[in-house]
């Protein structure tokens, strides 16, 4: 029990730091891919500290609450993941956080924020079934929804359900707000919705959302790591390769429309899941 509490506290403290560093590396690598020099690795930390020092400006207090709930949701899901809890519970907590983000965006009168919120909902509609399918597949392999059960496996899960890893990659692209699915918000401002759901959050609240995003990065990468649960080196290599692939995909595709996203996400998810399940039974 005490060990679990220590892990929880460590996850709570270290996850945002690790997330910030990963975002920093992400920005640096993206810059390299575009033949640029790139910002310092610690840049996301600087950004957040600066935002924390800005004047708070909110259109209504509801929005501030939403930002807090989003952070708490994201942090809690990371803690749950690291303490080996139930996958469905993690999923539920994560969704609650994300829903609050959208509610905050919808609560403001700005039309950009409104449209961004609607698109965020559509995105959730696209990635959540995928996550559920992935979790179901994990449960089929391990026989339980517990994260800790994954670590009792003898060989990496990737051997059994490789196609589900691709499905997870799909959800990852959406969750990390990477092109081609950066339709509701992205880290570069050049798009039709200014910054989509983030438009109306500013100053410390934007910093909060940024921190929540770091937690989410850790969470999704943690889910990836589950696919190679047998060795730490394997986990790190798998996660690094996946993230690099994400960055490259981000840089070689245009942003697509939400219709295409929804159609392809559901299509790809369902087809790959069925193929994978058939293969699993055939074994």
């Amino acid at each position: 029990m005490i060990a679990k509490i220590i892990i929880a506290i460590l996850a709570l403290v270290l996850a945002p730091i690790a997330g910030a560093l990963i975002s920093g590396v992400d920005r640096r690598v993206t810059a390299w891919l575009q033949s640029r020099y790139g910002p310092p690795i610690l840049q996301p930390l600087y950004d957040v500290f600066k935002l924390l020092g800005k004047e708070p400006m909110v259109t209504n207090t509801w929005q501030a609450l939403c930002a807090y709930v989003y952070v708490v949701g994201a942090a809690l899901s990371v803690v749950l993941l690291f303490t080996g809890s139930d996958l469905l519970l993690i999923f539920f907590v994560l969704t609650v956080g994300a829903v609050f983000l959208v509610m905050g965006a919808l609560a403001s009168p700005s039309p950009y924020s409104q449209v961004g919120g609607q698109r965020e909902l559509l995105q959730m509609l696209a990635y959540e079934p995928l996550l559920i399918l992935v979790f179901a597949a994990i449960a089929m392999v391990t026989g339980s929804f517990k994260v800790s059960a994954v670590f009792e496996l003898k060989h990496p899960m990737l051997y059994d359900i490789p196609l589900m890893f691709i499905v997870l990659g799909y959800a990852l692209t959406i969750k990390l707000r990477k092109s081609p699915f950066d339709i509701s918000a992205c880290h570069h401002a050049h798009q039709e919705l200014v910054r989509g759901v983030y438009t109306e959050y500013s100053g410390p609240y934007l910093a909060m959302i940024e921190i929540a995003h770091w937690y989410e990065v850790i969470l999704v990468l943690g889910l990836c790591a589950l696919f190679w649960s047998t060795s730490v080196v394997g986990m790190v290599v798998l996660v690094a390769l996946t993230y690099l692939a994400e960055i490259i995909v981000d840089n070689v595709t245009a942003r697509l429309t939400w219709r295409w996203m929804l159609r392809s996400a559901v299509g790809v998810g369902v087809v790959l899941t069925i193929v994978n399940m058939l293969w699993l039974y055939a074994q």
Binding site: L33, Q34, S35, R36, S179, P180, D182, C186, H188, H190, Q191, E192, N251, V252, T253, A254, R255
Partner: peptide
């Protein structure tokens, strides 16, 4: 134009 459909790296290459 590349930027308008969210293709940032293409934007960078053309401007280079």
């Amino acid at each position: 134009f590349a930027d308008a459909f969210g293709f940032e790296s293409l934007f960078m290459q053309f401007w280079r």
